[in-house]
Structure formats: C-alpha cells, structure tokens
C-alpha cells in the first residue's frame, strides 16, 4: 500500500519501521510514529489515559447497543423511581425512573461532542493567532496578543455564562462559549514556540528559497509548535468537560431531557443524602473521563515535547 518493498529483514515489521534508511515517505513517517508509540507505551499511566479516552469514544459510538434502556423516556414513577443500583439498573434510577447507566452511556456522546467541537474550533484559532503574531512581530503581534490578553483576563466559566446568557441556553451555545474562552492559552503557547523557531537557520534557509509567509507559517512553523499545543489541548480537555458540566449543572448547557452529565449531577443534588447514586454516577463519569484526558496529555507531553517533561 505504501509502495515500499516488503520487509527484507528477518525481524520483520519492527526492523522495517526502525530502519535508518527508509525507502519511502510512508516508511519514514510510520517509523517516526512507531518510535513515538514506543515511548508512549513506556508510561503505563498514559496508556491507561488513552484506554479511557478510547473507551469513551467506543461507548459513544456504540451507545444504542450498550444502553439497556432509553436515556430519555421515563419509567414507571411508582415502582422505578430512585431505585438503588442493582442487577436490573446497574447505576440505579433517577427521579424520573430513568436508568442512570443508560443516561451516562448516552451522555458520553454529548461529552465527546463538546470536547471534539471545542478542540476543532479553539485549537486552529489559537494556533493561527499565535503563529501569525509570533512570526510577524511588530504591531501585528501587539494587536493580536492584546486581544488574546483581553480574552485571557476573563474567568472562563464567567465569560461562558455571559455568552450563554446572551445567546440563550443550549449545548451548542455552551460549546461556542467554551471555545471562545479556551483559545487564548493556545495562542500564547503557539506564539512562544514560534518566537524560538522564527530566528532559526532552517527558517532563514526557507526564506532564502523565496518562500511566501503563509508557506513558512503553515509548512515550517506550525508543524513544530503544534505538538505542544496538542499536549495543552489534551490537558485542557478535563477543564472543558468540567466547564460543560458546570454549565449543565447551572442549567445553562444541555437542556432536559438530554442526558448531559453536569445536568444529571444537578438533578441528583436534591437527593444527595438518601439517593447518592443519582449524583455520584454521572459525577464518577466526569471524574474518570477528565482523569483519562489528563493522563493522556501527560503521556503525550513526554513523547511530543521532551523539553517540558523534564
């Protein structure tokens, strides 16, 4: 598939991947990826984090197959309300008689959706603003970084609250609000990295080949600062999940009956003393997924950004 000849060495795939004389672009890239993977798997906690994140993705994709009950349709309020965890209802039921396990399973879709959208919206904004500011310097840098500072000065949850208050509650608005408040740190990181890259000889060399500024930024600067941004984004995911849950908890994120974890914790608040599972189960889900992203981020940092690891 790669157009490379099959593996000549007896030790097979590994030798092919680690070859110091790759025969094709693909082999070189895969070899590089494999080395990173080997470094990553040396850290058991990072692998655990990755496993949790993969589990989250799988659960979200396979939710209809995994969840035994509907996440939104209420059960019989006389017999199925606020039941403790049991063989029938693994995580118990809530005040509407709904199976909490099914709701947590479906809730993973919302969480994943939030996380993905924020990553897709905030990361490119941050990276673009940071690299452009860092590469150009001068007044462009000043203007862009002051804008960044303004956004950075607002506490995330408060700004998100203001946005949601202005745009109206709902999961989409919550995502937009979170995205808008999470790019400034990425812009800062990207700018700092760009400043160190900007004056290096390899950038001077490509300038001397007559490369245009966008070409230099996209082809030469961004690939070098993207890894530290990815690490930061991954580490931020926990915070994003918590913010989304916080908005949900305050009733400003996902609206009922959507099974959003934060909103579920909010409902459980009323029964915290007697029916602890209503709040604890979605809370546990938030905790585990946040932890997973944090562990993954730490592991990625060791692989992608050896400077910061030490």
């Amino acid at each position: 598939m790669a157009g490379a000849p099959p593996l000549p060495q007896p030790s097979g795939l590994q030798a092919w991947l680690l070859s110091s004389e790759p025969a094709s672009r693909w082999q070189a890239r895969l070899g590089r990826g494999y080395l990173g993977w080997r470094a990553f798997t040396k850290n058991p906690l990072a692998v655990l984090g990755l496993a949790i994140v993969i589990l989250l993705v799988l659960v979200a994709i396979l939710a209809p197959l995994i969840a035994p009950y509907s996440p939104v349709a209420g059960g019989d309020l006389r017999t199925e309300r606020l039941l403790p965890p049991s063989g029938t209802f693994w995580f118990g039921t809530d005040d509407q008689g709904r199976d909490i396990f099914s709701r947590v399973v479906y809730g993973s879709r919302i969480t994943l959706w939030v996380v993905m959208l924020v990553a897709v919206i905030a990361t490119p904004i941050g990276v673009m603003i940071g690299t452009v500011a860092g590469y150009h310097g001068g007044w462009i840098d000043t203007v862009l970084m002051r804008i960044t500072d303004i956004f950075l000065a607002f506490p995330r949850l408060i700004l998100a609250l203001a946005f949601v208050a202005a745009l109206g509650p709902g999961i989409e608005n919550a995502i937009i609000a979170i995205s808008i408040t999470s790019w400034p740190p990425y812009a800062r990181i990207a700018r700092a990295e760009t400043l160190t890259i900007r004056n290096s000889d390899f950038i001077a060399a490509v300038k001397l080949q007559g490369a245009s500024t966008p070409r230099i930024i996209f082809g030469h600067v961004i690939p070098l600062c993207i890894s530290s941004v990815i690490v930061r984004v991954t580490l931020d995911m926990a915070g994003i999940i918590l913010t989304a849950a916080g908005l949900g908890f305050l009733g400003l994120g996902a609206q009922p009956p959507m099974p959003e974890w934060g909103a579920m914790v909010a409902t459980g608040r009323n029964y915290l003393i007697d029916q602890w599972w209503v709040a604890a189960m979605p809370g546990l889900a938030i905790f585990v997924v946040s932890l997973g992203f944090n562990l993954l981020g730490d592991g990625l940092r060791d692989v992608l950004d050896p400077k910061a690891a030490k």
């Binding site: 000889d201 390899f202 001077a204 070098l224």
Partner: peptide
C-alpha cells in the same frame, strides 16, 4: 540548526 527537524 539549518535543517527542519521534522522534515525528511
């Protein structure tokens, strides 16, 4: 320093 570290 004169070769991009991530480019073949």
């Amino acid at each position: 320093a004169s070769l991009h570290p991530r480019h073949t």
